[in-house]
Nucleic acid binder design. Structure first.
Lengths: 205, 205
DNA sequence: CAAAAGCTTTGATATAAGTCAAATAAAATC
DNA sequence: GATTTTATTTGACTTATATCAAAGCTTTTG
């Protein structure tokens, strides 16, 4: 009996430790009570992926929502000419999905890909919306995700439409220097919506 | 006494008729009960504006949410060089605001402007969020506004990044021919993110 | 650790779209 | 309805950035 409790306690302890970054993230970014936080994090399952693994392909319906526990991912799409356009980079302790597909339940035009070996906590679409209807504070959190996603995109459009290639680079260097130091030129260029050659020329000045 | 009732009934009748498009719109775009719909529409106040009136300027905090009962509006921002970039067109029976400012409570970089004589139903930010906390179905409607705004922007970025000026024009001609027939070249060009000269050349082919 | 595959840099050239300018055309205003 | 203002068209020229190509670097992988 004692053995059973110890084992069980041990498993809980381990599971909690494993998910502590996720828990901390949710506490910092929402106003969800401890009990509900535990219910929410129990819906996340751990998956690990090697670098350069495509987690979602264009044409598939995105039915998962990810928390990046470790590693790094990006979302991107392909032009007709086959050029990659990176839309979002998710480092450690951030969330990612192909939201347009996740929301609309339509085929995604975006890909999701790991750019480093990564550990993800995965929540299924079904569970996500189940929680939205059961836990008002989770619905509120979802709402704030949408608000932030909107603001992020709005800023992105503004940058794209008003700034030159060099200005976008300089801007990123100030706002998110990590992007410039951590990402390959190929990915960085596609994030800035320029070619690798142009990025190389900008950097060399 | 009879006179009083008649007058009162008459005023209600008039007010309801006045707001019937708004009511119809909300019924069609949400799942809000009759009682709550009435509460919601009572928060909207009618305002009329002449053509080419700036309703919100860059630098101001947007504290209003609009339903276009009649007329047409646009949101746009200015580049450092002073070029206008139209971001959204709101025809009859649609909603508009400077959402990034409305959401973030920060200064708007966008302008809101009437492009025709317009009748707007206006809801204050305060009332909007009051309703969000009081009426779950209104919160849900707000959520769906955000979802749609996200999808709209996402599509916009995809178009901007993958299509040429001519392709964007052709695309709009298929998807939203009304934009091309109703808007001036100046506004249409700024919506497509091209110059008037380029638009003129595209059209003449 | 060597070969292959994938990145990055640099140069030469091409191109879509912008800028400037001037002539019409249309709309707004007194 | 004449005049001023605003919008559109067309032409000549410029420019930022893409494309193509080749050489030098780095990783990855057997």
């Amino acid at each position: 009996m004692l053995g059973f409790f110890c084992m069980f306690g041990g498993r809980n302890y381990k599971r909690n430790r494993m998910k502590e970054k996720l828990k901390y993230y949710l506490k910092a970014n929402s106003i969800i009570d401890e009990i509900e936080i535990n219910k929410i994090i129990s819906c996340f399952k751990l998956k690990t992926y090697k670098k350069n693994t495509t987690i979602l392909s264009s044409g598939e319906i995105c039915s998962e929502f990810y928390f990046v526990n470790k590693g790094c991912l990006r979302t991107y799409f392909l032009t007709k000419q086959g050029n990659e356009k990176t839309r979002y980079i998710a480092f450690d302790c951030s969330i990612v999905s192909s939201f347009s597909s996740f929301i609309s339940r339509q085929q995604s035009f975006e890909f999701i890909e790991t750019i480093e070996d990564s550990e993800l906590f995965v929540m299924k679409h079904r569970d996500f919306y189940q929680l939205v209807s059961e836990i008002p504070q989770w619905a509120k959190y979802y709402n704030s995700i949408l608000e932030m996603a909107y603001l992020f995109q709005n800023k992105g459009i503004e940058n794209l439409v008003t700034l030159s290639a060099k200005q976008r680079y300089d801007n990123l260097l100030i706002e998110k220097p990590m992007y410039i130091h951590k990402l390959s030129n190929k990915i960085l260029a596609s994030y800035l919506n320029i070619t690798q050659e142009t990025l190389s020329r900008i950097k060399s000045k």
